[in-house]
Nucleic acid binder design. Structure first.
Length: 589
DNA sequence: CTCAGAATGAGTGTAGCG
DNA sequence: CGCTACACTCATTCTGAG
């Protein structure tokens, strides 16, 4: 959804910040402290909550030896109690992940003037090793010893730091190094083998599955042990498998798959939430997302079951799944229905009925010219070799036939139509053609999302209050509007100014009577701000968000870094804000 | 400066087949 | 089962023209 996450970069975390603790104290102490919720379920089992600091120095040393800082360990033990080593570890790993995400640390390349924290939820740790702050920023790129020292001061072991510098290169930034270490630590969690962790914590850490899968897990575990004996490496113990066909809990016109499901207790609203991202993310990503989002099983849906273009996405939500209904009129389901004018030019040897995923770039005019030249030498059917070349390019760039031997990329308004937006939704506001494609390529497929959200219509006849994170061009807003669900108060967070303009423009054009508040940065949304807004109109009914996929998407050749990548780590902000909203709503009841 | 074109693969899943 | 071939993917970065 996010149109342009660049520039959000992590410049806002300050280890030294000792102000602005009020909101975060609230979020950390009275809420679930940013551990994955199922981790907290484990916490709940341990009555012995240590309030008197950490008397057990052996326990502290144990975790320090694993590479965590002393302050962090103390805090985690205080949170979880001394008995629950497994939940302590999980908490620590979570903290590490969040710290090394862009939100959680300095970006050494960024403008130093922005160092004042917008109120990070980790500010509770802001008194850690106070000396390291300005030093990290001053370190020259080539100062290996300085980086090593900084990393050790941040709580990593010398070994971890050395390996990271070796693997990332001596000129790598501290951000890259911490990301690397963090990725390694996260990999340990995802890796079912846990080779370096003490035996006693291994089995419990595997507790990150869905209740309905537990049987399968046991058998898988047995299988893994068997394979391990045979020397076979198996690392997909914890991966979530994509369904085939990818229709989620059902799509209109498709055979019914699941008619009911039971949500984990912690997932039940209010508020309802709806999270989206690419289905084909690197291994382990969806396991992590699901673990954070209250262990809800993702619903994987390919929008080709809703419209004429494929779009494989995963949705984690706590909405009911009974009595869904589609948007009317039903959108065209084939290329020919969607683009009837292309039909007369479509050669018989191009058998496509669905378009591939709509992305952010389009094929060039030069390419269509090359294709025309390759075809024009032949009167009837071109040879198979040429057919294959043309078809491969057509599939890669989503080209359609617009004339004799002539293919062309989709026009922006055709993309809008395919994705379920009103025609010219992204036009105006001085947005370039390139940027229109980019914003559209990052958006929801409205019919798909609307089908999932349709269950809200009967539940909220008076309309809803919506928190929309990473709104992009407003896919969720358009979906709700087209469903006839009144938008009372909408708080929309979107980094891209052109996208905010597009949403504002749509809001005015559709004569919305509600109230639209738009913010640029999720970091502006702290507990204070939320509480203030929620008290003014009585809380949110729905929290929607599709966090940036830049570092998850297969098309990204350069920085497919997974959930800890610069932009995609904003997922943790989605969770942070959702959890804050949950806490405030619970408190208000 | 903006904009469009071009170059830049790997990771993942799956169908088919012996 | 294991292998192989194949299809597909909400992208980034550089360059050159205007």
């Amino acid at each position: 959804m996010n149109g342009d996450a660049s520039g959000v970069g992590g410049e806002n975390f300050d280890w030294n910040t000792d102000d602005e603790l009020e909101v975060n104290d609230f979020s950390l102490s009275s809420c679930s402290s940013l551990t994955p919720p199922n981790g907290e379920a484990v916490v709940g089992c341990g009555e012995a909550r240590s309030t008197a600091g950490c008397s057990n120095s052996k326990l502290i040393d144990h975790f320090i030896g694993m590479g965590f800082s002393k302050k962090m360990v103390s805090k985690a033990i205080q949170e979880n109690g001394e008995e629950n080593t497994d939940s302590i570890l999980e908490t620590l790993l979570t903290y590490s992940a969040i710290e090394s995400s862009p939100r959680g640390q300095h970006d050494v390349d960024s403008d130093n003037s922005s160092l004042d924290s917008g109120g990070s939820f980790l500010d509770d740790f802001s008194d850690i090793d106070s000396s390291s702050d300005t030093e990290e920023i001053m370190i020259p790129e080539s100062d290996v010893d300085g980086k090593l020292l900084s990393l050790v001061k941040m709580g990593y072991t010398v070994d971890e730091a050395s390996i990271a510098i070796e693997r990332c290169g001596q000129n790598s930034s501290l951000v890259e190094l911490t990301d690397f270490i963090c990725a390694a630590q996260m990999a340990k969690v995802a890796d079912a083998h846990f080779p370096e962790l003490p035996l006693e914590v291994k089995p419990k850490l595997k507790h990150c599955d869905f209740s309905k899968h537990k049987k399968r897990k046991l058998s898988d575990y047995a299988m893994w042990k068997k394979k391990r004996r045979n020397g076979v490496h198996d690392d997909d113990d914890e991966t979530i498998h994509l369904p085939n066909p990818m229709t989620g809990f059902g799509a209109p016109g498709e055979p019914c798959q699941t008619i009911s499901r039971t949500l984990p207790e912690a997932a039940v609203g209010p508020p309802f939430f709806y999270y989206e991202n690419v289905a084909l993310a690197p291994k382990g990503v969806w396991t992590t997302i699901s673990r954070f989002l209250y262990d809800v099983e993702p619903e994987f849906v390919d929008s080709k079951y809703f419209c004429a273009a494929a779009r494989k996405r995963g949705y984690v939500h706590n909405l009911p799944i009974e009595n869904r209904f589609p948007l009317l009129p039903l959108p065209p389901r084939t290329i020919h229905e969607a683009l009837p004018l292309t039909r007369k030019w479509w050669p018989s040897w191009d058998q496509r009925t669905k378009l591939n995923c709509i992305q952010t770039c389009i094929g060039s005019a030069k390419l269509t010219e090359r294709i025309r030249k390759a075809l024009e030498d032949y009167d009837g059917e071109p040879p198979l070799r040429v057919q294959k070349y043309v078809l491969d390019e057509c599939r890669k760039w989503n080209l359609v036939w617009v004339g004799r031997n002539k293919v062309a990329p989709l026009e922006p308004d055709e993309v809008e139509m395919l994705l379920g937006f009103p025609r010219n939704h992204t036009r105006g506001g001085g947005i370039s053609r390139t940027d229109r494609y980019k914003s559209l390529g990052n958006s929801f497929q409205v019919d798909t999302v609307a089908y999932h959200l349709s269950v809200l219509k009967d539940m909220f006849p008076g309309g809803i209050n919506l928190l929309s994170l990473f709104s992009g061009i407003g896919g969720a807003e358009v979906a709700l509007h087209r469903l006839g669900i009144r938008l009372k108060n909408v708080v929309s967070v979107e980094i891209s100014e052109v996208n905010r303009n597009i949403l504002r423009c749509w809001w005015e054009q559709t004569n919305q009577r509600g109230n639209l508040i738009d913010l640029a940065d999720v970091q502006q949304l702290n507990g204070d701000r939320l509480e203030q807004m929620m008290s003014s109109f009585g809380g949110f009914d729905l929290v929607v968000g599709g966090s940036p996929c830049n570092n998850l998407a297969g098309s990204n050749r350069h920085h497919r870094d997974g959930l800890e990548g610069k932009e995609s780590a904003l997922f943790y902000d989605y969770f942070r804000i959702l959890d804050l909203v949950k806490c405030i709503m619970t408190k208000a009841q």
